[in-house]
């Protein structure tokens, strides 16, 4: 890892590596609980896949907010002849890369042992990659727009919970279906699954573009709500 990336990893702070790790620990813990509670092997496998799709994306969404907001010397950064957006992108990228590493590891282990219940082949990565990118991007845009960690975290948490609780209503609407985060876990990977993943990835990339555009006025970040 280059010196600069190592520096950004340290600047991302404990939340940068702790949140994805916590998501994996929680997923493993739930799998052990379910297994101990008498769940069948295929149910436990489905739970692990759900952890990669559902739990990890929440961790990345909230961690992205904290990584963007956590800067005690932002004035100094803004005075440097370097685009601040690039600095933030590297920092978030290190955190996201760490999360992707965990997800790819879990996916790889399940696939190698024949226990992966999602789509076969490379497209299986979209099970966890699409919601991870989308919720991470929503978190970044929310914190840049609101300049409030609490508000941005509530938005990410609210979207996450609404998608889990009211999946029926969301899936009955074309827009809700296209942007439904947890299709593999709640519905499966039949018709429309790939389109849903591509919509999520595409709109996630667009949201990241919006975040880049918002950083054209980085001085806005100087007057956020203290939290």
């Amino acid at each position: 890892m280059s010196l600069r990336l190592r520096y950004e990893a340290r600047r991302a702070g404990p939340i940068g590596w702790g949140a994805p790790l916590a998501a994996m620990v929680v997923t493993s813990g739930l799998a052990v609980l379910a297994s101990g509670g008498g769940a069948a092997a295929h149910q436990v496998d489905h739970l692990v896949m759900a952890g990669l799709e559902v739990v990890l994306s929440l961790a990345v969404g909230v961690a992205a907010i904290a990584v963007v907001a956590r800067e005690s010397c932002r004035e100094l950064h803004l005075s440097l002849p370097v685009w601040y957006g690039g600095t933030l992108a590297r920092r978030v990228g290190v955190m996201a890369g760490w999360a992707v590493g965990w997800a790819a590891g879990g996916w790889g282990v399940l696939a190698a042992t024949g226990r992966w219940g999602g789509p076969a082949g490379v497209s299986g990565a979209l099970v966890w990659l699409a919601p991870l990118v989308w919720l991470g991007a929503v978190g970044i845009v929310a914190v840049l727009l609101s300049r409030s960690v609490a508000l941005a975290t509530s938005v990410v948490a609210g979207v996450w919970l609404v998608e889990l609780l009211f999946s029926g209503q969301l899936m009955s609407h074309p827009v809700g279906r296209a942007l439904f985060l947890f299709t593999t876990t709640m519905v499966g990977h039949g018709d429309g699954w790939l389109a849903n993943r591509l919509w999520l990835l595409g709109s996630g990339v667009v949201l990241l573009g919006v975040a880049g555009a918002l950083l054209a006025w980085p001085q806005r970040l100087l007057a956020g709500e203290e939290d």
Binding site: P14, G18, L30, L33, A34, G37, V62, A63, T153, L161
Partner: peptide
């Protein structure tokens, strides 16, 4: 605080809203 927020949201769903027949 940030890590607590992640864990709390996860706890809220698991410990309050997940059907006990599906998961302990």
């Amino acid at each position: 605080a940030p890590l607590f927020r992640v864990l709390f949201v996860g706890y809220w769903f698991w410990g309050n809203l997940t059907a006990p027949r599906f998961l302990p």
